[in-house]
């Protein structure tokens, strides 16, 4: 579903590579957790694979479509939830969902069915006709999630999705991720909440200073990092080691 081949990205006027020779394969039906310290390259990777940022080296395939050569078809396969919510805040929640459904060409019956399901799940039904500007941080996050899922994307990409969500919504979102992968789709998300990554993800990638330093299932990571240690302990040990080496 998602294949990243030796992708590298440097920001303008910087010799430092924000993402350095990253190779990653994420199969269908997998929840993939992408973790790393601040400034490790998580958001840059997500922006590269969603087509927001160009990159110099390597290539990225989404659902078989190269993001550089065929960006429109690649983007059609993605539902993206950024870390900075909806920016068209004068729209109502319903208008935003309809806009996203129009852009991704979702027919009326299907969009209605999906919107109702998610609105009810996130307890947003009564607020859907209010302007987004009146929403709380969590409500904005939820409307963004619904907008991203309205076309049932094969690859659902989320950047720090659990920030600002109440426990109930956080629980619903995690269930939704599982449900999405059960339908044969893939979820790729970045997070700082290591407990969530440990419990929720089928596979985990740890990135530091632009390089993928550890990747695998939770069991594989434990085998590599220390069998009796939690993901948090392994993460701190590995990133500290790498920082000392560099």
């Amino acid at each position: 579903m998602l294949r990243i081949f030796s992708a590298s990205k440097s920001y303008a006027k910087s010799t430092f590579k924000a993402v350095d020779n990253l190779t990653l394969h994420v199969k269908k039906g997998v929840i993939y957790g992408f973790i790393g310290p601040n400034g490790a390259g998580k958001t840059t990777t997500i922006k590269m694979l969603t087509g927001i940022l160009p990159f110099e080296e390597g290539n990225i395939e989404i659902n078989g479509f190269d993001i550089k050569r065929d960006p429109i078809n690649a983007k059609k396969s993605i539902g993206f939830v950024p870390d900075n919510h909806v920016i068209y805040e004068k729209l109502t929640g319903r208008e935003y969902i309809n806009f996203m459904a129009d852009i991704y060409r979702v027919d009326l019956a299907e969009r209605k069915r999906r919107a109702e399901k998610y609105l009810e799940m996130f307890n947003l039904t009564k607020d859907v006709d209010s302007q987004i500007s009146s929403y709380s941080h969590g409500m904005k996050q939820k409307i963004c999630v619904i907008g991203a899922l309205i076309h049932n994307p094969p690859l659902w990409v989320l950047d720090e999705p659990l920030t600002g969500l109440d426990p109930q919504s956080s629980f619903e979102l995690k269930n939704l991720m599982r449900e999405h992968t059960k339908q044969g789709n893939t979820v790729f998300f970045s997070t700082h909440v290591l407990e969530v990554a440990e419990k929720l993800c089928d596979r985990i990638g740890i990135i530091n200073k632009g390089k993928l330093i550890l990747e695998g299932t939770m069991d594989e990571i434990k085998a590599m990092g220390g069998k009796d240690e939690s993901l948090e302990q392994i993460f701190i040990k590995i990133t500290n080691q790498q920082n000392i080496q560099i």
Binding site: K47, T50, G51, I52, P71, I72, N73, K75, K76, I78, F80, P82, N84, V86, I87, Y88, I103, Y104
Partner: peptide, 10 residues
Amino acid sequence: DAEFTASLPI
């Protein structure tokens, strides 16, 4: 909105 529009299939 540059980032948002860049992520859309348009």
